[in-house]
Structure formats: C-alpha cells, structure tokens
Computed example of a mutant assay.
Amino acid sequence: MTNPSPMPAGRSPLAGDAFSSARYKSIARKRAPAKAGYLLAFGLFVAVSGIAHADQPPDLSPARTSAEANLVDIRTLVPDIAEDIKYAGRDNFVGAPVDGYRAPKCFLLRPVAEALARVEHDLRARHLRLKIWDCYRPARAVADFVRWAHDLGDQRTKAQHYPTLDKSKLLGDYIAPVSGHSRGGTVDLTLERCAAENAHCEPLEMGTDFDYFGVRANTDTPGLTPQQRENRSLLRSAMEHGGFQNYPLEWWHYTFTPEPTPHTIYDVPVQ
C-alpha cells in the first residue's frame, strides 16, 4: 500500500491491512477462508472492515498447483537464503502448524521472487542477508487464523504475541478474512548481519518479534532505541530499492509493486 489510510482511534494497527477502497492495495494479515466459503468470507471482511465500495472483489484462482499459479520457491533462485517459515511449525501466534503449510517453504509469484533474489544479492555485498518468515499464504491458512481467533480458550501464545490485548479483541481489528499474502506478492522478513565471509549471521535487533500484535510493531513507532530504528530503516531502504513497499504498521511486511495479480488470491498448498 502506497498511502495507508489513517487508522481510526481505537483500531489496531493491523486493521488497515486488507484491500484499500481505491485499488485493493493493503497488505497485512487479513485471513481468508477458501473455496466454497470464500464469498461468505468476503462479505464478512466488508462488514468487519467497514468498507463499502463498487471495486472488484478479489477472485479465488482455480490453480491447483504452484506451477499453475506461477508460484516459485525462492530457493530455486537463491538456494541458501535464510528461512524460518513460522506457519509451517509451532513457533507462531496460533501455536501449531497452520492449514495449507505442508512444508517450510517460501513461494512467491515469479516476478516477485526474482526481485527478492536481487535484494538478497545486493545485501550480500554489504555482509547482510535477508531472513524470511512468510511469503505466499494459502487462503485456507487465513481461514485457520480465523478459527483460532474464535477459540478464546486457547491462550498459549498470549505472552509472546498479544501480551497487552484480550484475545476477544483480535478478530476484526487484528485478524480479518482476506490476506494480501494470498496474492503471492508479499513477504515477511528481517535482516541478518554476517561475518566477513558471509557466514555466522545474526539477526538485527528490530524491537519486536515477528507477528507482535501491538503498536510497537509499527515501522516508525516511538520508543525504539536508535539502533532498532536504524535497523528497521536499513531493511526498508534495501527492500524499497528492490521495488517493495513497506506496510507502515508492520516493520517486517513488504509487498512488491506493482503487484502481478492484484485482484487474485490463491489456495495452493505450500509443499
């Protein structure tokens, strides 16, 4: 999203991460059901987000494989890129592997993957590297997030991911039924600094963990240390140079622009 809409008072920073009313350009954690339930889910999204407009709703692609969707594994371009695909394991806000993630892989639409590979190449000349947490996200994974948000008895990840919030407040403000990640052009990542031989890399301190529900995750939030602010700026500069735009309310979240398929979401499993 180039110019995110201002957030109403009291709304969470992630609530703006859907489709903008002008061109469906928002880009954060909007969670979407798949296949037969998709139209119902989009209606819920409109109700939750308060968006009413005549723009084209996203289409659910009929693609059944990554090849049909033109999704490629980033490691076919950068075999040793650092990855920690959170939703394929238990270290995430759901606390369990997420539906649709059958392998810890990063898939992106080919033009996006090629652009990300160029960013990685440029960073290595400065003894820096990317570390990827999430890329393309199947629509069924987004539906899994919504199911989790309805289960108020499951509080296992509160201390790490939403320590200052009641879980009942997450659905709608933080978790909604459509995700920009499902369009294949968005990536969640951080930066690592490496020794001179580009080995022994360590993540830079950014001020929060990935998927922190709170204003401290905002890219330019007050209260960061000078080093944390510099590290976030370093990541943003590298990604913008490669054609990616930051979602200002999540420092780790970048979308390639222009998106190759801005009105299409996919439900191909990550495998």
Results as ranks from 00 to 15, higher is better:
F107G: 00
L128W: 04
K167D: 06
G242W: 10
T221S: 15
Y212H: 14
P6H: 08
Y254W: 09
A149Q: 11
M1A: 06
H127W: 04
E250C: 06
T261C: 14
E202N: 05
S20T: 15
T208H: 00
V270N: 05
C135M: 05
R229G: 09
L235P: 00
A82M: 11
Y87T: 04
L108P: 08
D91T: 11
D144S: 06
D122M: 05
E230P: 00
A117P: 04
R126N: 04
N218K: 02
G214M: 01
Q245C: 08
W133S: 12
A88C: 10
G223D: 03
R29K: 14
Y254V: 00
K169F: 07
D80W: 00
S182G: 06
F19H: 07
L170Y: 12
S233V: 00
G50C: 07
S179A: 14
L171T: 05
D220S: 07
D91P: 03
R90A: 15
I27T: 13
P269F: 10
E240Q: 07
P58V: 13
Y212N: 15
D134T: 06
T255F: 05
S61R: 08
L191Q: 00
N198F: 03
D267H: 08
R216W: 01
A103M: 10
F145M: 13
P62L: 10
I27M: 09
R183C: 10
F145D: 15
N3V: 12
D211N: 07
T221R: 12
R110H: 09
V146Y: 04
Q228M: 03
A103T: 11
T164K: 13
H150M: 14
F107M: 02
S21A: 15
K169Q: 15
E202D: 05
R229F: 09
I74W: 02
L44H: 07
T65E: 07
V146T: 12
V94D: 12
A196I: 13
P97G: 06
A18S: 13
A88T: 04
T261V: 12
S20I: 04
W251I: 01
G50H: 07
D80C: 02
A217S: 13
P58A: 13
A22V: 05
K131A: 06
N218L: 02
E259I: 07
A103L: 13
A96W: 02
Y24P: 07
R229Q: 12
R129K: 09
L39M: 08
V215G: 14
L39S: 10
L152Y: 06
P79H: 03
W251P: 01
V72Q: 07
T2H: 14
V142A: 15
I132A: 08
V94A: 12
I265Q: 05
K86L: 14
V112T: 15
A9W: 14
R75Q: 14
V146C: 12
C106M: 12
I81M: 14
W133Q: 11
F107K: 04
R31K: 13
